[in-house]
């Protein structure tokens, strides 16, 4: 196990190195960040001074090596735009994104698992067919389109929910959270629904497939033959066995959702880190983009590790597969 964890971490470091080079060179090629920052009235001398202050007068490789040196000490540079440490900017925005994704994923699981089991138990029933057709809609329509339609319906036509921004927050242990206020939930509803809908559709499909795979198994037949109540069969035998694929998919989707929040956040002006990434890419705020991606890689690696460990916890025989 430890070898496997170390292996993963080494891999992550490799990915980060490759990626940071690509992003560095890439953003360098797009254009000069100072052209976005500096007032058009500034003279060439003032521009040069800014380039020097931001270290942009150096060659790209020197800039990169300086970055690596500082990063080794945990310093990911300062945002060109705001002058604040890039890492701090991202961490400040993180609670909003994580909150959104957690609520969306919870919604997806609460809706998806029961519907999926239902569709799996009686695949021929019209209700099941309706669920499956609905789920096609859910995961195939583009995220942003669903968001726009929800805004039109709930915010503009019906006027029952706010269309953008985050609600009132409460400070808990230094982290601003909005899930403890009514206003917060009202603001959270539409973006979480947008993000959660596609995920719910996916969970339905995974749950259905898993249910259908488990149903013909001997232990279910055996339990039925023993005359156990259907609810008990469902709870103990079925749920336990379909849990692995659901946990795997939900875990992977959690990572995807954190990234996908980019779209939802920009539709709903949600002040999360995805929005920060888009804005930073547009203004060529390289330190923020690089720091964001590095955080993302670390997060995904840790997430995958956690999924694998959960996997083994649920089904020890899966351990072999994981290491493959």
């Amino acid at each position: 196990m430890p070898v496997f964890i170390i292996n993963r971490l080494l891999q992550a470091i490799g990915v980060i190195l490759v990626m940071s080079v690509l992003v560095f060179v890439g953003l360098y090629l797009i254009g000069d960040p100072t052209s976005m920052l500096v007032s058009p009235e500034a003279t060439e001398i003032e521009r040069q001074a800014l380039r020097k202050a931001l270290g942009l007068d150096q060659s790209i490789w020197i800039q990169y090596l300086t970055f690596l040196g500082n990063a080794a000490h945990g310093d990911f540079g300062r945002s060109f735009l705001t002058g604040q440490p890039a890492l701090q900017l991202i961490v400040e925005r993180m609670p909003a994104t994580v909150e959104l994704v957690v609520v969306a994923m919870t919604f997806a699981l609460v809706v998806g698992v029961p519907l999926g089991i239902l569709a799996g138990l009686r695949p021929k029933a019209p209700s099941s067919k309706a669920i499956m057709t609905g789920s096609i809609l859910g995961f195939s329509l583009p995220n942003f389109w669903i968001g726009l339609m929800l805004i039109m319906l709930f915010a503009v036509y019906l006027g029952v929910l706010p269309a953008s921004a985050r609600g009132e927050t409460v400070n808990i242990g230094g982290v601003a959270l909005s899930i403890f206020t009514l206003d917060g939930w009202q603001h959270l509803a539409l973006p979480a629904l947008t993000l959660g809908m596609a995920k719910a559709a996916l969970i339905i499909r995974v749950t259905r497939a898993a249910t259908r795979e488990v149903l013909p198994m001997d232990y279910i037949k055996f339990a039925r033959a023993k005359g156990l109540r259907p609810s008990r069969i469902l709870k103990v035998h079925l749920l336990k066995n379909i849990l692995i694929p659901i946990v795997t998919v939900a875990g992977l989707e959690f990572g995807q959702a954190i990234a996908f929040a980019v779209v939802t956040e920009s539709v709903f002006s949600w002040p999360g880190m995805g929005k920060l990434l888009i804005d930073s890419i547009i203004t060529l705020d390289r330190p923020v983009v690089v720091a964001y991606l590095i955080m993302m890689v670390f997060f995904l690696v840790i997430l995958n590790l956690v999924i694998d460990i959960l996997y083994i916890a649920i089904d020890p025989s899966a351990g072999e597969k994981v290491r493959d």
């Binding site: 039109m152 915010a155 503009v156 706010p162 269309a163 953008s164 539709v267 709903f268 002006s269 804005d279």
Partner: peptide, 14 residues
């Protein structure tokens, strides 16, 4: 801050 103009308009209308 609301970058998207349509979102700003929807917010004002609501």
């Amino acid at each position: 801050p609301m970058t998207n103009p349509a979102a700003r308009a929807a917010a004002l209308l609501s």
